[in-house]
Amino acid sequence: MEDWRKNKGAFAIFLGPASFWLLLFFVIPLILVWVYSFGERGPQGQTYLALSFENYLRAIEPIHLGIMLKSIWIGAISTAVCLVVGFPVAMGIAFAPSRWKNPLLLIVVLPFFTNLLIRTYAWIAVLRTRGFLNFGLEWVHEKANWLFALAGFPAALGEFVPLELLYNQYAVVIGLVYVHLPFLILPLYATLEKLDRSYLEASLDLGAGQWRTFFSVLVPLVMPGIVSGALLVFILSMGNFLVPDLLGGTDSLMIGNLIAREYGAARDWPFGSALSFMIMYPVFIFFVINAMVARYRTRRRAEV
């Protein structure tokens, strides 16, 4: 049989539709947005093509730059929390007996079957002042008070004051972690699943304890899974606008909300485009550096 990699014709046929799709719905719109970012807004919100850096200058005004930095910050926090929560879950599934794996994975992706909007609203019902979490706390509070009363200290704990859990940055982080956790668990699980267990056994055999094995062998070996999962969560969290919109307060505005507002209510597409590309540029730079490092590494390897 002919090697399909050598058969350029077959290659083109299979790759054609996907490339066409990417070109039509990803590359061209991206270029369009990039061109818009140098444009000007007309009086009625039209977009005029131009070569102006006005939008970028506006984008780095302190107020916008601040929102951008905060988005990065909240994205980073959410990613960190996702890692701390998701790593044990991914490990639990990967090391579970094989008949449990599929049911457990199903549980992880099950929330996706419910609309994101509904899931986010559900968090409002949980976190608001008269929400489920506060009800639960109130119940505990009441019982504790009752116990104290029995012991001869009536109303020792005082009135129950509901916690302000909603409409702040914590709620945003909770929501972002909740929504994006599967994006971390799944790639991490896939990497852990492929990991040859004898590496871990070898480490134990050589005298390392469980923790040492975890940090010196397991983590480095599944680093690709950690990086791809974390990157995914970070990008999705940073750009999310629904969660901060619904769960966040007035100070929780994120870059996604800003862009959504410029494209929507403000009808300022050029400025929205510039804001979008303010996030894209670092990503591009990251990939270029990454590729350069990889090339440098392979070249050095060949020299040894």
């Binding site: 040859d196 004898s198 056994e201």
Partner: peptide
């Protein structure tokens, strides 16, 4: 546990740490 036994093992796949 394995890390407290006075034996060492050469694995079939060798399990030489790639990193």
């Amino acid at each position: 546990p394995p890390n407290r036994r006075p034996v060492n093992m050469v694995f079939q796949s060798y399990a030489v740490f790639p990193h």
